[in-house]
Amino acid sequence: MGEAIVITSGKGGVGKTTTSANIGTSLALSGKKVCLVDTDIGLRNLDVLMGLENRIIYDLVDVVEERCKLHQALIKDKRFECLFLLPAAQTKDKSSVQPEQMKKIISELKQDYDYVIIDCPAGIEQGFKNAVAGADKSIVVTNPEISSVRDADRIIGLLEQEDVEAPKLIVNRVRNHLAKSGDMLDVDEIVSILAIELIGVVVDDENVIKAANKGEPIAMSPSSKASIAYRNIARRILGESVPLSTIEEEKGFFSKIKTLLGMR
């Protein structure tokens, strides 16, 4: 019996889908059997990020409306034998699925997979309710900007009312130089506002965009910082204790001296 983790954020464009794709890929890299579920009906993206768009025959709504069996709708990943995707429908909207139906599908998937990663749509309406319905755990993604943190706070409040474990936090798209100069919320500040456990910090990396456009999750290329961050998050999900990588790794000579002198 596996566990279902919903990736959510409230606000759009903070990197839910990218996070879902990369956590899924990283878990598959460590040999786990993983199923990604895209619940963003009408605005599906996860298939594109995974480079699996052209293989979709049936989708989530087809399963719900019993036009096909669940296993028929699952798409096997190009790279991993143990990674599957249940795509969302593009032609319908969120109201074509009910939370109860989602619950049934997710619990069916949990029988066969170690991890079911649910990619949640933006917003707090029907789509959110569907995505959360079957989940055991939740991860909230936020960016270091006020509006995104505000929405994350709202989502955490809503998750507290649901039947899921206390959510974990990923701060995505952190830019080192802005956080250092104080022009951006820093990670500690965000954690103190949201008051939930931090599970990962992902730096802003243009390679993520490049990889996404190629349909290849960044987690596949081990050299980039974002990739390492995602892999570490996956390891933490697996229960390993990996220290949170501090963002200011490369301190210059002068800043070291300043720290020594207590000037920073």
Partner: peptide
């Protein structure tokens, strides 16, 4: 508890809240 954005905590009498009220709460 933490009163988060969008949440309303309403009581009769005095309120002693042990926790934060976040922006929007």
């Amino acid at each position: 508890k933490v009163v988060r954005s969008g949440q309303v905590l309403s009581v009769q009498g005095d309120l002693l809240l042990i926790g934060d009220v976040n922006p929007g709460g």
